[in-house]
Computed example of a mutant assay.
Amino acid sequence: MDNMTQILELAVALLLAGAVTGILAGVFGVGGGAITVPVLFEAFTFTGVADEVRMPLAVGTSLAVIIPTSIRSARAHARRGAVDRDVLKIWAVPLMAGVIIGAGVARYAPPLVFQIAFIIVAVIVSVKLLFGRQSWKISDTMPARPFVAAMGSVVGLLSALMGVGGGSLSTLILTLYGRPIHTAVATSAGVGVIISIPGAIGYVLAGWGQPNLPPDAIGYVSLIGFALVVPATLITAPIGAALAHQLPRRALEISFGLFLTLVSIRFIVAAFS
């Protein structure tokens, strides 16, 4: 296989991944990082990126990709009036603080840290969605403001390590505190916007000057990966948002749970193979 054929196959794979990412962003209120990170990881493996920078490069590039995807998804949900703006106002600063800490950790953490964080969170969320019942609630209302803020910082930290927009975590939290699934999904799209921008900037800084990065990378963000995935996500995110508002609550929960289960399996294989 010549170099041109390899490049074309890589481009097609990333464009298809971007299309799927956009739909997932709209349907589940996530930035699509749970699909983008493993796809980019495999793409970087295929192109010979060094082991020690492959995972943080996939995570950082995913956060950059999430920026336009989350913005478009959040706007689509906001037009339907489903976003809980009060929660977003409380979470904004703590989310960004958690992301900054996570980006700092990324400069020194081994690849296994990112994969384990992804697996643990995805398994917890998928169990809740697949087997949980409406009675699985902590309360019908959100807790006191300081506690809500603390939860936001944890969401930001874990999202920065996972390369996701925080949709899975924020959706879990909001449903446990009595928010309807459609409101939780729509609000999570807004969370993705707050996380992705400082997250991408943080990974650029965390990877700045690191050895063995590919020539197109700015820190831990791949410009080629960003350029190929983003256009497809922008086209398909509104389609996913429209689909989310047509699905029954339980169908949306099961779909999200199965999606996270598949991602968990993928990362378990990657982490322990």
Results as ranks from 00 to 15, higher is better:
P38D: 10
P38C: 04
P38R: 05
P38A: 05
P38G: 05
V39E: 02
V39H: 03
V39R: 01
V39W: 01
L40N: 07
F41D: 03
F41H: 07
F41S: 06
F41K: 02
E42G: 05
E42K: 08
A43L: 01
A43V: 04
A43D: 00
T45H: 14
T45R: 15
F46W: 12
F46T: 15
F46E: 13
F46L: 15
T47F: 07
G48C: 13
G48W: 10
G48Q: 10
V49T: 06
V49M: 02
V49I: 08
D51H: 15
D51V: 15
E52H: 14
V53S: 08
V53Q: 09
V53T: 14
V53M: 00
V53G: 12
R54K: 15
R54T: 12
R54H: 11
M55T: 15
P56L: 12
L57R: 12
L57C: 09
A58M: 01
A58P: 08
A58V: 12
A58K: 07
V59H: 03
G60F: 05
G60S: 09
G60Y: 02
G60C: 10
T61K: 01
T61N: 07
T61E: 05
S62W: 13
S62P: 06
L63P: 00
A64Q: 02
A64L: 04
V65P: 02
V65H: 03
V65L: 03
V65I: 13
I66D: 06
I66G: 10
I67N: 05
I67C: 10
I67K: 08
P68W: 05
P68Q: 10
P68Y: 09
P68M: 11
T69A: 14
S70P: 13
S70E: 12
S70M: 14
I71F: 12
I71S: 08
I71Q: 06
I71K: 03
R72Q: 13
R72S: 09
S73T: 15
S73Y: 06
A74G: 06
A74M: 12
A74C: 02
A74N: 04
A74I: 00
A74D: 03
R75L: 14
R75V: 14
R75Q: 12
R75S: 07
R75Y: 11
A76K: 06
A76C: 05
A76V: 05
A76H: 04
H77M: 11
A78P: 02
R79S: 06
R79H: 04
R79W: 00
R79C: 04
R80F: 14
R80G: 14
G81C: 02
G81K: 00
